[in-house]
Design a protein around this nucleic acid. Structure first.
Lengths: 333, 333
DNA sequence: TTGTATGCGTTATCAT
DNA sequence: ATGATAACGCATACAA
């Protein structure tokens, strides 16, 4: 049987209150009795039961991280950033994979509430009204990471996806490309992929290039989507460049093109987004927009912990800097 | 204020015992009173407090996952596999990144114990005696994943690293390569990288090729290590092939070689290990040994949950199948 | 400085 | 079938 505070008290010949006091270093306790207690703790190999403590204090020192899929390339770094600062402040994290399934999201949120987490880092591509309602009802401290609520109802960490995409496409244009395709995840709502589409459109407009629906595809953000989508687009005629809403798409596009005997960047320029690990090991190395993934996680966690401690937030919506990384998948002018 | 079982009892005009009964569907409770209770629960938006329940039942339905680094390519899939089955059985997971730092490992183990997790999935490259001692002292249910304790003190899930590496090197030999280098993480102890080195040696021996220390390097498992190590080896003279203890190393090697104007696989064959995501998107696509990462996580979690429920284990040490994936980084004979 | 007693929100035993 | 109550391990207000 594992020792409790009661056992320590008995062993040390004091009351549990005193033991609790030395444990929490609260009040002043006589140096001698403190020693006795410490001795008893050591002797019994006593460890505080945090579950009991949590019930009493109404704080668990654990934080939920709700994420689409940890095996999905961009999330591990975000989570690592978050866990690192959580660890600094003595919090632990409960990881929840939702696959963007609304029911799973809601289920996890409920369980997290029942397990009394002190807050949650939330990643999703859209805040459904019903989910938002649940969040309100649950009254949980929460920060949105890698996305921003359209109506700013939740504190958030993100980059300016629209601006970044616009910049990327203008970079492509500047390199002499005119006919530029877009391949992304979805074009509805307010998720990152849609915002990147907006940026793409804006760049075209700024440069007096007509938007052509035939040059777009939205089947998903994975490698396989890029692999397939480029075929559909290419079947309607060649393009100068492809702007992809994710690096995975870009890799699929390039591999697909290679199989057709089309060279990147010599024949077609391809640009990715995110700067995942594989982007710099891929051949050709991907020119892409780097999102500060680790920072998104760490800044988000820092923000959440501030909220938990009822500190004032300097900023409700952090918009982190991104970076255009010039590598080898776009033809130099 | 969030409603408790007491509020529900009052609202329904029954005792908390009755509420608890309908909550846990235990004993028989009158259909009418059950309805009343259900109504009250709904009305108050009541949710059970799992922390309180855990204190009482001594079970938390949460499991710790201790891992070197979630952002390290091979772990996300393992974790995903683990979380998926945890979710099926209504467990949550607490994720802990240790960076293989022994102190961090021990600290996390202690906290996990204090938070009363029901068990832990443990990933590390070596079980230090002190860590093993702590594990014993903490009396936690634990399964070792992606490694096997030399003395089999802990249930484990792994592949036969030695055999896999041997097979990989023999494949290289079979393809006509004679001078084969090895680049790995460390050559001490009993971790995966060392076992792969053993397999490499065994394959050489079986084929009457002398082991040459000059053809080996052990600076680490990352891309940068492969990138640098191959330079050192190559400086002593060219080789026919390189067997790498990780795909990341292999990618570093290939990129480094490419910069020297040496082509893979035309001039040198390179083989990786793990089959991480980037292995199949890399150019050239990596010939490698595929570890069933998702399965390691899911089988490990299934095993752990069995242990938690005191079910008999059919197997104390699962050795999962691996697979040699022929792609494009090794020259076809 | 220390001890007693109460409550955190449950489950479960024992009555009724 | 239902209710009163103890106990889980701890923190803390109040007494001493």
């Amino acid at each position: 049987m594992v020792a409790s505070i009661k056992d320590v008290a008995k062993e040390a010949g004091v009351s549990i209150a005193t033991v609790s006091r030395v444990l929490n270093e609260v009040d002043v306790v006589n140096i001698e009795t403190k020693k006795k207690v410490m001795g008893a703790i050591k002797k019994l190999g006593y460890r505080p039961n945090i579950v009991a403590r949590s019930l009493k204090t109404q704080k668990t020192s654990t934080i939920g991280i709700v994420i689409p899929d940890i095996s999905s390339q961009i999330y591990p770094e975000i989570v690592r950033g978050a866990e690192d600062v959580a660890n600094i402040y003595s919090y632990n994290i409960i990881l929840c994979n939702t696959d963007l399934d609304i029911e799973k999201e809601q289920e996890y949120l409920k369980v997290l509430k029942e397990k009394m987490v002190d807050g949650v880092i939330y990643m999703s591509n859209s805040l459904e009204p019903e989910t938002m309602e649940l969040i309100k009802e649950l009254e949980m401290k929460m920060v949105l990471v890698e996305a921003r609520d359209k109506e700013d109802r939740l504190p958030s960490i993100s980059i300016d996806n629209e601006k970044a995409a616009c910049e990327a496409v203008e970079y492509l244009i500047e390199k002499g490309n005119k006919k530029i395709a877009f391949i992304g995840g979805s074009n509805d709502g307010y998720n990152a992929s849609s915002l990147r589409l907006n940026g793409y459109k804006k760049a075209l407009e700024k440069n007096s290039i007509d938007f052509d629906e035939n040059l777009t595809a939205f089947s998903g953000l994975k490698t396989i989507n890029g692999y397939n989508d480029i075929c559909v687009i290419w079947a309607k005629g060649p393009v100068d460049a492809v702007f992809c809403a994710s690096d995975e798409i870009a890799m699929g596009v390039i591999n697909s093109l290679r199989e057709k005997g089309i060279k990147v960047p010599e024949d077609v320029s391809v640009m990715g987004f995110d700067d995942i690990y594989a982007a710099s090991t891929f051949y050709p190395k991907l020119t892409t927009i780097a999102q500060p993934m680790y920072d998104m996680g760490s800044v988000g966690m820092r923000m959440l912990i501030k909220m938990i401690n009822k500190k004032e937030l300097e900023e409700e919506h952090y918009v982190l800097p991104y970076q255009l990384i010039e590598r080898d998948s776009v033809k130099k002018k």
